[in-house]
Amino acid sequence: MRYVLLCVGNEHPWTQAGPEERQAVYARWGAYNGFLAERGAGVGGHELAHSSTATTIRKNGDQFLITDGPYAETVEQISGYVLVEAGDLEEAIELAGPMPSDVEIRPVPAREAS
């Protein structure tokens, strides 16, 4: 099965982080990507720019309402995702364990995974 591991959390510390702190965080993500590669489980993934750069479109029939900002204005936002291949939820949880952030695990429905 495929799972998307969504990287969730408060974005504020990241915006305040200095170059050294950022480098340290990127190093941890680098190590995590190494772990996924070693397991042969990583299928793809990206860091996302800050939610203040988000644009949201709400659709109502033919009408498009375009607004600035993320879909839900909450303190915790999605700041990245990793797509992994795992045998079951147990393995997905194991793969999410070393990820340097809180994680929301979402299964990809089977017909789209293959």
């Binding site: 079951d88 299964p107 429905p109």
Partner: peptide
Amino acid sequence: SQAGIPYRVP
């Protein structure tokens, strides 16, 4: 079923 919770004893 959808999340892939395995039928297994840990």
